[in-house]
Amino acid sequence: MPATEPGPFLIETDDLRFSVGGRRIFDGLSLRVARGTVTAIMGPSGTGKTTLLRLITGQIRPESGSLKVDGREVAKLDRAELFELRRHMGMLFQNSALLTGDSVFDNVAFPLREHTRLPERLIRTIVLSKLQTVGLRGAARLMPSELSGGMARRVALARAMVLDPELLLYDEPFSGLDPISMGMIMRLIRRNNDILGVTSILVSHDVEEVSQIADYCFVMSGGKVIGEGTPAELQAMDSPLIRQFMSGSADGPVPFHYPAAPYRDDLLGGGR
């Protein structure tokens, strides 16, 4: 990402607004992600965490407000500039999004083969080293259908890292994983950051895991940032909404029940 003058923040949003089908997802979202940190975006399901990642990668455009990646306004980039920007990003999808027709090796090699003219021998070396990092060098010849969920996510992580991006985006990296796979993914996220200096954005609602590895957290609700700070600072905050979220209580400012008519009326109302 050739920045004009690299500021301390890799990503800056200001008063970002975005709606889907008349429903407002972001209503003046402002946050800044410092370079070289693991930054978590947390919030209840449906607060638009994944949408934020899609905005950062330029797959969708905001209605108004500003979203800058490395000082460049994403919405104003043309297609070629956007593709250039994306070459410096890696993203781990929640469902891994591996190419089901290609082997593990070919999946990880895919971005290299598309974007570089490296000889196949060198590609092999790079791919095996990335697979070694995620502990799956031995699985190189397997097909995605032969992998467990945790393995698939590690392969997807190797693929996201293969072009040595400056920014790694993780969409719910812990959801649906067993504790061992979860531990491995956590270690890998932290390691990418500590050893390679990658800036990581982590979208998640797994408070406990996030608290262990994130340097900084934003808590979103109702299309806005309602709290930010280090995990320890967030734990100590007074706001009832943040407390409910951080402690995982079923009821609080965010009600347990989806808005509905009184239960009694519904039951006696006869199938309306």
């Binding site: 990668t57 797959q59 598309e114 693929r159």
Partner: peptide, 22 residues
């Protein structure tokens, strides 16, 4: 359709690879 449903095409887009062309 399934590639789209399983985010394989989105993943390509994020990898700066045009899914229409590829």
């Amino acid at each position: 359709g399934l590639m789209r449903a399983t985010d394989q095409l989105s993943a390509m887009e994020v990898m700066a690879i045009d899914p229409i062309g590829r």
